[in-house]
Simulated assay, not measured.
Amino acid sequence: MTASADAVRAAVGAVVDPELRRPIGELDMVREVAVSAEGSASIGIALTIVGCPAADRIAADVRAAASGVPGVTAVALSVGVMSPAERHELTERLRGGRAARRMPFGPDSLTRVIAVTSGKGGVGKSTLTANLAVALAARGLAVGLVDADVHGFSIPRLLGLVGPDGTAPTPTRLDELMLPPVAYDVKAVSIGMFLRPRPGEAPVGAVAWRGPMLHRTVQQFLTDVYFGDLDVLLIDMPPGTGDIAISVGQLLPGAEVIVVTTPQPAAAEVAVRSGLVARQTGQRVVGVIENMSALTLPEGSTMALFGAGGGDAVAEALSTDAEPVPLLGTVPLSAALRECGDDGRPVVAAEPGDPAARAIQAIAAAIARSPRGLAGRALPLTPR
């Protein structure tokens, strides 16, 4: 039995572009398809850009899909590139009618935006954000992650996106859109993906920018990066209440906020301030996470290295009669959490049985279950 060209086209068209996360048939990347009487399939595809980083994977997936069609005995694949006009048409379709550089996460967006903040550095906010993103993606949600900690970026390493040369992959440029790298089913963008060392320099870059540059960078991450249809967008905020906190408040006034603290009173007192500033910009504080809580020792006793009660104190200080703020969970001190972060393996994926991983998974489940705020959000209702 000889396969039909339609059957091969259907199989090949179902191959998903690893960057755009949509079938290549839907993206008009499949061109001519023919099958000879002997069952040899000739297939042409057009990639979005010259030097597409996903070219080898797409080609391999297309060959595998075509070879899996009953009756196909051989596959000949030709790979081309879209014309500028075709690429422009594709970017317009991906925008869904939205104008270039327009905020896609406004009041009408169905994406839940959650900014993860802290009053001071060193409380594990980025580690928790990366692991929460991976845990939410593992629950079947479409998740994006913006590393807004421009000066202290760490998301590329925490998600395993940093290669042996110490650099992270640069987002692919598709006309005015940037396609973010994907790790553990999380689409992520960070300033660390755009820094490249000069000859003779160490691969670790540094950013020395002030307010206007910081605002523009965060704005570009939110408007120019193509995340597609997301259920949740997490934003890893820098510590404190400076320029970026104000910029995110202006750009995303309807965002929800999670405050991270450690158990010690000194950290809890500062953490409260980040929640208060977020609330002043119109954002809603939806919970507190206490990190580095008591460690359970091998003999069963516990050691509260950083004290106790900080998470409860922050939640109580930020709660009002109209807006109670719950303690979403406590994450114990964990060597696995630290080691996996250094290795680029989120602990919720690499060591799911670790106490810290279980605590983060429970927090992710609570976030996924909690209702999203609809205040100021336009609902698709037509009066009759």
Score class of each variant (00 low, 15 high):
residue 255 A to N: 07
residue 14 A to R: 15
residue 277 V to Q: 14
residue 285 V to P: 05
residue 232 V to D: 04
residue 32 E to T: 13
residue 362 A to I: 00
residue 147 D to G: 12
residue 253 P to M: 01
residue 166 G to T: 12
residue 28 D to I: 03
residue 15 V to R: 12
residue 363 I to L: 07
residue 345 R to E: 08
residue 271 A to K: 05
residue 167 T to A: 08
residue 155 I to T: 05
residue 100 A to D: 14
residue 90 L to F: 04
residue 240 G to V: 03
residue 340 C to A: 09
residue 380 P to R: 15
residue 94 L to H: 10
residue 341 G to H: 04
residue 334 S to V: 00
residue 9 R to C: 05
residue 343 D to F: 02
residue 256 E to S: 03
residue 353 G to E: 15
residue 224 D to R: 09
residue 136 L to S: 08
residue 6 D to W: 11
residue 98 R to K: 12
residue 313 A to H: 00
residue 152 G to A: 14
residue 33 V to E: 13
residue 202 A to R: 13
residue 122 G to V: 08
residue 255 A to T: 03
residue 240 G to I: 01
residue 277 V to C: 04
residue 237 M to D: 04
residue 313 A to G: 00
residue 306 F to C: 01
residue 2 T to H: 08
residue 73 T to G: 14
residue 179 L to Q: 03
residue 60 A to Q: 14
residue 191 I to R: 05
residue 304 A to P: 11
residue 22 R to L: 15
residue 20 L to P: 09
residue 21 R to T: 11
residue 374 L to G: 00
residue 224 D to V: 02
residue 61 D to R: 12
residue 115 A to N: 15
residue 322 A to V: 03
residue 93 R to L: 02
residue 61 D to I: 09
residue 1 M to K: 13
residue 88 H to V: 01
residue 330 T to Q: 14
residue 228 G to I: 05
